[in-house]
Design a protein around this nucleic acid. Sequence first.
DNA 1: GTCTATATACAGATAGAC
DNA 2: GTCTATCTGTATATAGAC
Lengths: 211, 211
Amino acid sequence: MEKIAKPGVKAPTRDAEATRNSILDAAEQEFAKVGLWGARTESIAARTGVTKAMIHYYFENKENLYKAVMERLIAKRRADLDSLCVDDLSPTDAVSAVVRNLLASIIQNPNVGSLMLLEALQNEGRYYMETSVGSLYGPLIESLKRGMQSGEFAQGDVVHVTANVVGMCVFYVIARDNLKSLWPEGTDLLSNEMCQAHIDSCLKMTLAAIK
Amino acid sequence: MEKIAKPGVKAPTRDAEATRNSILDAAEQEFAKVGLWGARTESIAARTGVTKAMIHYYFENKENLYKAVMERLIAKRRADLDSLCVDDLSPTDAVSAVVRNLLASIIQNPNVGSLMLLEALQNEGRYYMETSVGSLYGPLIESLKRGMQSGEFAQGDVVHVTANVVGMCVFYVIARDNLKSLWPEGTDLLSNEMCQAHIDSCLKMTLAAIK
DNA sequence: GTCTATATACAGATAGAC
DNA sequence: GTCTATCTGTATATAGAC
């Protein structure tokens, strides 16, 4: 006879991979909000439905959990970028593609931006560097370089331009709770319409700024 | 006979205003790094040289201290902006002036950017709104509007453009610890030369993007 | 006004039952 | 694999001496 859980109480799943992932998901949320040091394992556990003992069982301690979250995020982002094959595109198309891709990724999961920014603010990029940042900016840098060399883009400091383009794309999403008062009360800055407007604005401004 | 402090031990200053300000300064540093919830009063006290009991004496609790820090910062920023009198300038000059002013302010004290961003991430802008954000973006918004109406600037969504310009200026400073790997090892992103390059890049890109 | 000492609460981490 | 109970350290905040 099958073992039945008490009424109202969720039966333990006993699925290692599922539990591990749900902890990672919950931790991503928590870390994206308050960073490594502000995060509470208790609060992460509460989001998952398992107890905090499980966090130590799977990740040993909070710091390791944080590393795992960062690694998962960065790996996904890099795979995303690789799939673009920007080298096969004209400089203008390549820049557009990278900007679109960055925006899509950060809008679909705003935690990406928050986590990386908190990492810079709180840990001086310690955990970010370990997995080599450069590659996340590489495609944009290379595309801008090509465009400047071919004369398609105006001359300028490639790396500063790169940082500024990323900042333009990212800021709206991560600072949205401060910015929201600039729009009529109740506007959802992450709604489809608002995001589309942001994407349009970023693309237009980026291309105008580099041409 | 004058009372002498024990050798090696600093004599208590007993200057209320000075103590209060030094607590605010230290708190600004700490909050800018880890935000309201990550901050430790002990750590704030350690930076000041007074004990944490003083924090409660002057501000009652950590939350009030945080509010005081935010208010001081925003008041300063607003005064800064008011002194520009952007309405007396042409749209182009006005935008340049605001951008220069924003950059100067955030470079001189990077805590401004960090604090406001952490506020958005961690508190949904709760403590920021209280002191009415809109006025900090007002001058830039109005200048852009004027420029678009006069035909000096291209048409576009004024508020999105505003947010994007601010993001472009701010991101470099607050995310510098992540970005630093894009430059040769050891480069100080807040050095005079690097800041000047950032300012140049922002001004050039902003004006190109809105024209 | 500033300190030391302490009350009280809560966090991260472990032990051991199931 | 998951839970409950608990140990240990540390945080905010208070009390009271100076």
